[in-house]
Nucleic acid binder design. Sequence first.
DNA 1: CCGACGTGGTCAGGTCGCGTGCAGGTTCGA
DNA 2: TCGAACCTGCACGCGACCTGACCACGTCGG
Lengths: 226, 226
Amino acid sequence: MVHDGEMTVVGICEDDPGVRRVLTDALKMHGHDVVIARNGREAVDNLGVRSGVEVLILDVGLPDADGRDVCQALRAGGQHAPVLFLTALDAVHDRVAGFHAGGDDYVVKPFAISEVLVRVDALRRRSRPEPVSISGLSLHPDRLSVAADGREATLTPTEFRLLAAIAAEPGAVTRRRAAVAAAWPDGAIVNENTIDSYVRRLRVKLASIDSPVELTTVRGVGFTLR
Amino acid sequence: MVHDGEMTVVGICEDDPGVRRVLTDALKMHGHDVVIARNGREAVDNLGVRSGVEVLILDVGLPDADGRDVCQALRAGGQHAPVLFLTALDAVHDRVAGFHAGGDDYVVKPFAISEVLVRVDALRRRSRPEPVSISGLSLHPDRLSVAADGREATLTPTEFRLLAAIAAEPGAVTRRRAAVAAAWPDGAIVNENTIDSYVRRLRVKLASIDSPVELTTVRGVGFTLR
DNA sequence: CCGACGTGGTCAGGTCGCGTGCAGGTTCGA
DNA sequence: TCGAACCTGCACGCGACCTGACCACGTCGG
C-alpha cells in the first residue's frame, strides 16, 4: 500500500480497554502500527526511545499516574515523539492550553476517532523534528526556516543543516569540521572556504530578522551562537 | 416531509443482490441517490472521491475483501466520506465497537431499513464536507473547487488532491514524494515532471481567483503555501 | 457511430537559483 | 610586524524547475 505517507508507529497509553480498542482498530485501519501500554508503568517500559514509536497518545487521567507525568518521564528518557493528550472535558480550561503551545496536541473525551486520526497524521508530519527554540530563535525543519519574534527567513537545505548544527548546542562552540560534516552529510569534500560563504549568508539572513543571537566566530576553532 | 432537504449520494458496497436491492430502493424512495459496487474491486473503482458519494455503506463480509480493507483503500484515495458498516451479529463484539465510537457507524445484519435510513442521515449531517479553510483559501471537497474571497475555481480530482495535500499544513513544506503519493494514491508511477505541470495549473487557477496565498517552490525539497 | 470535450500524462526547451570556488581585503594573534 | 585565519563580494555551471505545447484516453451528446 502506497497511500499518503509512510506508516506511523503510534504508542498508546490508556487504561480503559474500550477506548484502547477503539484507538487501536482505527489506527490500524489507517495503516498505522500500534504499541500498547495499559498504565504509566507500562508506558515508561514500552514507549521509550527504543520502542520506535513516532507519535504518543497519552490519557491524562490514568489510575496510577497523570499522563503529563508519564510524558515527562518519557521525555527524561530521551523520548521526543510528539504527544496527543486525551483529556476529560472539565480539564480543558485547566492547563491543557499549554500542551498545544509545546507542539503537542490534545483532544477532549469523548472524541471522534476521525479527529484523532487527523491529529496523529498532523503530529507525525510536523514532528520528525520539532521546532527547536534557542534563546528567541526558532528553527522550523518542516518549513526550512528560522524565525525570531514574528519575522521569519527561509533557508536553503544546506543553510538549514549548517545552522541547525551550530544551534544544536547553544553556547557551545561548533568546530569547523563538525559543521562541515553536519551540513554535508554525504561526506563531500568541500573547499574550506565554502563554509565561510554559508556562514556569511546565515549572518545576513539572521540580521534580516533582527535575530537576538549572533553567529560569531571563535577564531581557530569554529562558530557559536551568542 | 420527513427527510430534511437535500439528497444524499450514498455509495453501497454489498455482494448480496437482495440486500443491495432493499437498500437501493429504500434510499431512492427517500430521495437519495445511489452508487453501487458489488465487491471490493468495484468499490475502489466506483466509490472514490471522484464518485461524489457523501456516505458509504460497506458490507464487512465481502467475498473478495473485508469491508474494512475497502474502507482503508478508499481512505487512502482521499475518500473521507463517513462509513456505515454492515456486519453480521457474531462480529459485533469483535472490534465493531470501535467503529461506533468514531465518526463512522455500523448496523448489525439483519437490520431494519428505517435504522439504516436514520443513520445515513445522521452520518451525512455530521460530516457534510465542510470546506477546509486555510489562510483565506477554502477547499470544497464536495465541489472539487477552491475559493478565495468570492471567487471560485473548479479543480480536477488530481489537482484537488494535490492542492489539498500541500494545503494540509499551511507554511510547511510538502516534499515532492509526499505530494506525488497524495495526488496519485494508487502508487502510479508518474513522470517526475508531471507534478510540475499540475503545480503550474494550480498556480494559474489560484491566480485566477486572486488567491491571498501563493504556491511557492522550495528548491530541492518540495512546495509550500505562503 | 462520430466528433467535441475534459482530464491525465508526457515532452523539449528555456530559465533560474543553489552550491561552489576564487580573489582580494581585513582582522586577529603571536 | 607578519602570517594565518577569516570576511566579503562575485562569478559560474549544473541541475532543478518552469513553461507551453502536445497526445492518449474515456465520456457524452447528437
